[in-house]
Design a protein around this nucleic acid. Structure first.
Lengths: 100, 100
DNA sequence: TAATGTTACTCTGCATTACAGAGTAGATCA
DNA sequence: TGATCTACTCTGTAATGCAGAGTAACATTA
C-alpha cells in the first residue's frame, strides 16, 4: 500500500464543467443561471444538467425568487458542498505533488 | 471576463481514474498493467478502457514484450502526454488558486 | 504430465453521464 | 398586444464508465 492508493477524487466535483462551477461559486458566493452560463460557456441544457447533479448531491442549493420582476434562481454552495470542495482540493494536492 | 473564464480542463485527464493513472506514470516513469491495477483498485475492464483512451489520445504509449516468459506490456507517458499533464496542472492551479 | 491455477490482458453489453436543441412560462418592449 | 427576451426545463441521443466473462500464455501442484 503506497501513498496514492487511498486517494479518491470526488466524481461529482472531478468533472470539467462542475469543477469550474464549484470554483466559481466558492469565489463568488452566489451566482445566477446566466452568470454561470456566461462563465462556463456551455449550452443551457448542459448547464442545467450539471447544476441538477450538484443539487442532487447536496453540494449546491437554489433560491428561486418570484414576485418582483422576472423570476430568478440563485445558486450557492451548501456547507457540505464547501467541505467537499475543500476535501477535493486536499486530495488533488496530495495526489499531484507526490514523490513515490 | 474574469480570471476563470478561459480555463479549460482537459477532459481526457480530468477524470478520476485517468488523473491518477497520469500522476502515477509521471512519478513512476513506467508501469505494467498489474502495477496500475493494484494502484488504482479498479476492475480489469475498466482499467483497460481508461488505458485505451489515454493511448488513443496519444498521451500514453505501450510496449508489449513477448518471447521471454509471460508477455507483458508496459505503459508510459508520451512527450505530448507529459506536456498535456503539465498544462493540466497549470490549469488546475490557476483555476483553483492552489499552492503546491 | 495432466489438471489446475494464475497472470495479463481483451471484449461485450449494459448503466450512467454529457450534451444539444427544442420547448415553455413569465416578463419586458415596440 | 404581438414580438422578443430571459431563465430555465425536458427529451433524445451520443459518449463514457464500468463489470464480468472470455482467452492465451505460462506456472504450479498432484
Amino acid at each position: 500500500m503506497d501513498a496514492t492508493s487511498a486517494i479518491e477524487l470526488d466524481s461529482i466535483l472531478h468533472q470539467p464543467v462542475r469543477t469550474r462551477i464549484a470554483a466559481f461559486l466558492v469565489a463568488r458566493g452566489e451566482a445566477t443561471f446566466s452568470d454561470l452560463k456566461k462563465e462556463m460557456q456551455v449550452t443551457d441544457g448542459n448547464l442545467d444538467a450539471h447544476l441538477k447533479k450538484l443539487v442532487a448531491a447536496g453540494y449546491v442549493k437554489t433560491n428561486k425568487q418570484t414576485g418582483q420582476g422576472r423570476p430568478q434562481t440563485t445558486y450557492r454552495l451548501t456547507r457540505p458542498g464547501q467541505s467537499a470542495f475543500e476535501n477535493y482540493l486536499e486530495a488533488l494536492k496530495r495526489l499531484l505533488s507526490l514523490r513515490f
